[in-house]
Each structure stands twice: as C-alpha cells, then as structure tokens.
Design a protein around this nucleic acid. Structure first.
Lengths: 267, 267
DNA sequence: TGTAAAACCTGACCTTAGGGCAGAGTCAAG
DNA sequence: CTTGACTCTGCCCTAAGGTCAGGTTTTACA
C-alpha cells in the first residue's frame, strides 16, 4: 500500500495529476479511507500508471488512453499504436519543414536587416486565362482532408476513362474562412467532351508559391493586398494549380511549385 | 481597406482569431467604425498578420510574439529566432526518441501479446555500497536544468583541482515530486582528501536503466514497487549514476546506461 | 501522551488560443 | 424596402493539470 505521495514519487507524477486521474476515472486509488478521504494505491498500480504516462508521451489524449486501456481486442490496440506512430512521423516531417522555413527566414533577416523581407519573393502577374474543361469533386471538408478528396476524384477519373490533360487543381468556394469546414473542389483538366463543367477564362492575378503548403497563406496575402491596392476585385473562386508536388514525383518539399490564381475585374 | 471577412480570407485566419488578437492588443484594426463597431484593416496589415502566423508556426506563444514585434534591437531579435530554432531541434530529437520507444513497445506487444511486457526488463539486485567521497552542487531546480548544474559542478571541480574518480551522479533529496522545482544534487566522486562530504554506504536496491531519460520513471516505479513488496523502506535520497551518456562520449541515446540506487533497510 | 510538522483533503479560480452559440445590429444588392 | 450576407458583443467551453486558501489527518519526536 502506498500513500499518494509515495505513489507520486515512485512514478514521477505529481499528486495533482493523480487526483485529476481519480476524478476523470482514468486511475482510481485501490482504497480510499472513508473517514479521512486519503487515497492509497497498490504496488500493482505502478505499472498501470507508468503505462498511462508512456501512452501520454506517445501523444494520446487522456480520453484516448481511457479507450485504449479498455480495449480488449489486441489487433485493434496494435493498430492504434501503429496509427499513432504515423502521426508522430508526420509531426516530425512538419517540424523539419518549419525548421527549414525558420532557417531561411533567419538568413533573409540577417542579410537585409528586415524581419519582413522574406515576403518580397512573390511576383504577381496579370494573366488572361482560357476556358478550362474539368472534372471536379466538390465537398465541405477540412483543408487537411485533401488526400481523401484526391482519392475520390481519381476514382472517378478512372471510372469514366478520362485522360487528365494537366495537373490537379483546387478551387476555394468559401465565403468565410474556416479551416476545418471548407467548401473545396478538387479538379483535373480533361478533354472538352469528357468534362464535368467549364471554368470560364477571365483576367487573373497570378503568382507562384515555392515550397510547402504551410506558408501558402503568404502568397494569398500578397495577392489579395495587390488586388485591393490596384483597384481590382475578386469575381470568382480563387484556385491553386499543383505543378510540382509529391503527386507528380517531386519528393523534396522545398522544390514544390503551386500556381495561385484569383479571377479579378476592375472595380 | 478590408473588412474583417476579407482580411480573414486574405491571410487564411479565422475571424474569431482576428477579434482575439484585437482584444489582446496583438493586432488592432486600422479603423473601427465608431457607430457600428465594424473592424477595417489596411492592406499594409496583411504582411504583419502573416508574420504573426509565421512566428506562431515557429512555436512562439502570442505573448512572446508581442514582445518580438516590439523589439527594436535586431541582434536580440535574431538571437531569439535562433534560440527558437534550437528548441525546435530539441523537439525533433525528443520526438525521434519517443518514436523509437513506440516502435520497441509495439514490437514487444506483438511478440508477447501483453501491452505491459516492455516493463519486465528491469532486473533488481540488492547491493551493499561503500562510503563515497564526493564534491557536489545542490540546488532547487527544474529537472530540465541539469545541464546548468553540471556546468557549475565542473567549474568548481576545475577550480579546486579535483580529479573525478568516477562518473557523474545525481541525488534526489525531494520529499514531494515536483518536476520544475526539484531539490537535486549533482556530484562526482573524488579522492577522500578533496571531498565535500561523504555518502555513507548502505544496503541499496539497484537497477540499470538503458536508453533515454524520458522513460526512467519506469525504472523508479519498478524499484519502488519491489522495495514495498519485499518489506523494505527507503532510508536516504535515491541517486543515479550516469555510466554511459553523451558526456562520456556515447552519442547514441539507445546505448545510454544509468544505474539507479535506492538506499534501503528492512521495515 | 502531547504537540508540532508533514502530509493530505476539497473547492474555486487560472492557464492557451481561440471555438460555438445566442441574440441583435449593419451593409449591399435587387 | 426587403432580404440575405455580414458583423457585433457577451457568455460559456476546451485539456491537462497548476495555484492558492482553508481545513483535517497522520506521523515523528520529546
């Protein structure tokens, strides 16, 4: 039998945390003195708490841990651990990309003495686009669910025996920005006869974003500011064209290229 | 002039976030209509908000970002960015270690079918230790401030021309566990004449922990449970001996070795 | 056995960076 | 003038505990 303080020291966990776990029914003391309210733990609970702390390190939330401890199906449990490993892998990749961004930024800053200088790299051009026949797949989704949408689009492309004539695009039909409930259409250009609908050509403000998607807001910002400053207004859904991507075989994120188009007209 | 909705779309930031930044004085709209309360932003504020989002990606808190934007000293600013880069690097290393832990755990689990099987690796032995003459440096500190303490200890060792006769150790004098306010003493064994004080030998429960320090709680837990189960009690501050470490040239975390000793006596 | 220190209890409020909702006011187009 | 889109304030909520305040219990020692 261990008092809460002994148990806390044994597992390197604060007393507050133990009381919290008691309250949310994640780990109840083996015995509570009815009169004093003191909590006492068995030595067999030590490995249980250590497992909880370990799962926490893996990145599971306490609610998820509760589920996991309850899971009797060993395959399911292993699958969840495996899934978490993939999530950690993704995190690792994201942090690497951000570190690269930070290094570039720091270099720009030390060269120019201007903390904003990294933003000058967007060259904005006016372009008259042609009509574009596409097959599209449109849905309310999180911006992180792109992968899924790609999948569904290409299922359809395969089913209808279409031949894509250019790289994948994404249209942003939203009126309000909401990252996990966006009205996005992914599309590929196809021959006119096979098309779903046609994007009418128009005057567009265009720029090219180099690198990962985390910093694409920079390009959007530069474009929107330019459009407002030059007396234009946006007249249709802006869209991205993914020229260089892991999908077309460019694995090095730093070499990705995305064209961003805002259909515009004079105000 | 951009309405809050336009500004939000331009920078890919939710309206709620913009109102929050207004409230905490991080980014105030250029103009607020006195009668309607509507917020309006200038296009020049777009790069400002984009910078804020970027610093947020780097891992700064909003409070830190406020400080950074206020900082006029460019060297200081560059230093803070650089420091953040180091923090990201550390995070990267930590996540790698955790992924390795997870992989090992998953392998153990799939081999044995027991989610706890990873904990059976601690062999606990009883050992009668000798008196130990040491030079130590004791302070209230966070468990993450070990590096600092090492530094101070070795400054002193150098100043007093002591010759360490063994690897570094750490004593945990705390009665309550509190990770960022721990009463820790780092020490090295020296020749008897040069010693600061002497650690009396006693019966000890001992085990060896292999690998990174994140999972050392497992070893503590195993020891404490063993001590309680076998009718002993802890009679002095437990301590670690860092046999293999980055300090003695073992860079591969998986090969680190730490001996953990709990001075005990029959209850 | 008495007392003081150490350990433990509950409960209320605080943290980050916003999200969700209700209810009301405002703007722009037809 | 109406309708729909847009925006406002204000209140409560999140995860995983941390930080008091004020009171009770246990333990160690004289």
């Amino acid at each position: 039998m261990l008092s809460i303080g002994e148990f806390s020291r044994a597992c390197q966990v604060t007393i507050k945390t133990l009381r919290h776990y008691d309250k949310i029914d994640l780990l109840k003391p083996a015995y509570i003195d009815a009169q004093s309210g003191y909590r006492y733990y068995e030595t067999e609970q030590v490995p249980q708490l250590l497992l909880i702390q370990r799962l926490k390190r893996y990145g599971f939330s306490l609610a998820e841990i509760q589920q996991l401890l309850f899971t009797k199906d060993k395959c399911l449990l292993a699958a969840k651990l495996s899934a978490q490993k993939n999530i950690l892998e993704q995190q690792l990749a994201q942090v690497s990309v951000i570190m690269y961004e930070l290094e570039q930024h720091l270099a720009d800053f030390e060269r120019t003495g201007d903390i904003m200088s990294y933003q000058n790299k967007y060259q904005i051009v006016l372009k008259e686009t042609e009509d574009l026949a596409v097959v599209g797949y449109r849905q309310q989704m999180s911006v992180d669910d792109f992968g899924q949408a790609y999948g569904k689009l290409f299922e359809r492309v395969a089913r209808e025996h279409c031949q894509p004539t250019g790289p994948v695009m994404a249209f942003y039909h939203d009126r309000v920005f909401d990252p996990d409930n966006s009205d996005i259409e992914v599309a590929v250009p196809v021959a006119a006869g096979q098309a779903d609908h046609v994007i009418s050509g128009s005057l567009c403000a265009v720029t090219i974003h180099h690198g990962a998607y985390a910093s694409m807001a920079d390009a959007y910002g530069a474009l929107t500011a330019w459009i407002d400053d030059n007396g234009y207004e946006v007249i249709a859904a802006p869209y991205d064209i993914y020229w260089k991507n892991h999908q077309n075989g460019v694995s090095n994120v730093e070499q990705w290229e995305t064209e961003i188009r805002f259909p515009i007209a004079k105000r």
